[in-house]
Design a protein around this nucleic acid. Structure first.
Lengths: 105, 105
DNA sequence: ACTTACCGTAAGTGACCACTTACGCACCTG
DNA sequence: CAGGTGCGTAAGTGGTCACTTACGGTAAGT
């Protein structure tokens, strides 16, 4: 999936990963996250935007504040991507075991 | 795990992801990869170094050339990382269903 | 209506990273 | 030993991105 790439990029950044991990543990407002992290509130907003586009979080208005919570979709996409290569690796390994290494090209 | 972060960073780059995907499909030499990709051979070498440090590929000398093949370790680390949050999400969702949303703070 | 709180966006800047060319080293062939 | 091939590393550079400050917009409080 194309989403898997976005998820990889999104979780590649350490700060963004921290944001995601906190949101995954419990829904948070932007201010809460910024207060717990060593970056400014706008930075958190930008990170949340990337995470949202990757399908890793979703947001909803709660009065004055805006609550972000984890969205399984993004994780599922990345899992599917990984499983693809995981199975490929197993198949390749199985083939390598069944057949002795033969010279090629 | 700490390795999961390295895997996320490694697979975050598009070119590096292409390198990994080709190696995952079949063992390749550096020259083969460089020939199939729109970057120079040193670039491929640098990408392979990162992938190797992330536990995604392993290399072995084959005469003059150097063969890279997929290493399941890195994928497994990332899978474990994802599963952690996956289960966390399921637990949170289950709690949210069982209990109506109550005000807090 | 005025003030305060919370948030997203715009613009600008510094640092990191992917890429290139140049070079040195190991292995095979004649 | 000399020539050729395959690879990794060093050094340098351009582009991208994470971060900051400044600003506008919406919702609650008095």
């Amino acid at each position: 999936m194309a989403r898997a790439a976005a998820v990889l990029v999104a979780l590649g950044d350490p700060t963004r990963r921290q944001v995601f991990e906190r949101v995954a543990g419990r829904p948070h407002s932007v201010g809460e996250l910024a207060e717990a992290l060593p970056v400014s509130r706008p930075a958190v907003s930008q990170h949340l935007k990337v995470l949202k586009q990757a399908g890793l979080v979703s947001d909803m208005a709660a009065g004055n504040r805006r609550i972000y919570r984890m969205e399984p979709r993004g994780l599922q996409d990345l899992r599917a991507y990984l499983d693809h290569f995981w199975n490929q690796a197993l198949a390749a390994f199985k083939t390598a075991v069944e057949q002795p290494p033969k010279e090629e090209g």
